[in-house]
Amino acid sequence: MQKFDIVIVTEDRYDNIIASDENETNILLEDSIIQKAFERKGMKTFRTSWSNPEFDWSSSKLVFISTTWDYFDRFPEFSRWLESVKNQSVLINPYDTLTWNIDKHYLSDLNDVGINIPKTIFIEKGEHKTLSQLFDESGWEEAVLKPAVSGAGRHTYRLNSNNFGDYEKVFGELLAEESMMFQEFQKNVLTKGEVAHMFMGGEYTHSILKIAKKGDFRVQDDFGGTVEFYNASKT
């Protein structure tokens, strides 16, 4: 018997907590807004961590993945959970869409249909490649290195011809475990920020501008970045 209409999915760090910092406050606020919106529609809701071993996912008609911000740190486990849940309930965002979006190899798909992306080289798990070779092959002055499955600035490094040697060891260690991506550094991130456009149900809703803290290039709030509304032009 299904007890719930929908489950809002978070992760262990944010499940059944009292917020103690700005990040936790934002997480709880976001999930609360979503949960109350569903409840106003007359839906019976529940909120729990994706790795809750006691929760029966077949007890809910729908599953909404919300604040699972440890998926990239526990990717093999999270992938197994996704595979299991899709057979027990209905994911609000389809399984194929979720798995496609989690892995930044999707940038190649976007490029193939004519959407401009930063120049990117993917280096697959276990491949024998060095940063020195990548700089030689690309000819770029600056680059960003990060895992293909990542978030919150995890193992994201800004490299140039003077400092890449400091990262050869960590690059080799990461590449032995997962696929990596090497992108030409976009200097306008420092001067203009990074714009994100939001689409829901195929319809444009709004845009935001993410700005890095002075002296940093990472726009995530984990590193002092800020977020504000952005008025996007139709072109």
Rank of each mutant, 00 (worst) to 15 (best):
K86N: 03
Y106W: 08
L174K: 01
T99W: 07
A152P: 04
V90Y: 01
Q88D: 00
S138C: 05
N87M: 00
A152E: 11
S32V: 02
F4I: 07
N93T: 14
S132M: 12
N111R: 05
L110T: 11
D73H: 13
Q35G: 04
L145T: 03
V90R: 03
L190H: 04
D136R: 05
T67V: 04
F38V: 08
E11H: 09
L29K: 12
R158T: 03
V149E: 00
L131S: 08
S66P: 04
W57D: 01
Q220W: 03
E127F: 06
V227S: 02
T205E: 15
D136W: 13
E178W: 04
M200V: 15
E184C: 12
H197V: 11
F223K: 14
Y14M: 02
G215D: 14
D31A: 09
H105Y: 09
F55P: 03
T235F: 15
F182L: 02
V90Q: 07
K210I: 00
E194A: 15
A152I: 06
T226Y: 05
F78C: 00
G172Y: 11
S84C: 01
G172V: 00
S66W: 07
G42P: 12
E168M: 03
R158H: 15
H206I: 03
Y167M: 08
E177S: 12
V149M: 01
F122D: 04
V227W: 14
V219R: 12
A232T: 04
D31N: 07
F164T: 10
S161T: 15
A143I: 01
S49N: 05
E77D: 06
L159F: 01
L107R: 12
F229G: 11
K61I: 12
T10G: 13
N188F: 06
R13G: 00
V149F: 03
F185H: 07
P147F: 03
Y167N: 01
T68F: 12
I34E: 00
V227K: 12
M181N: 09
N93I: 05
T226H: 03
F4G: 14
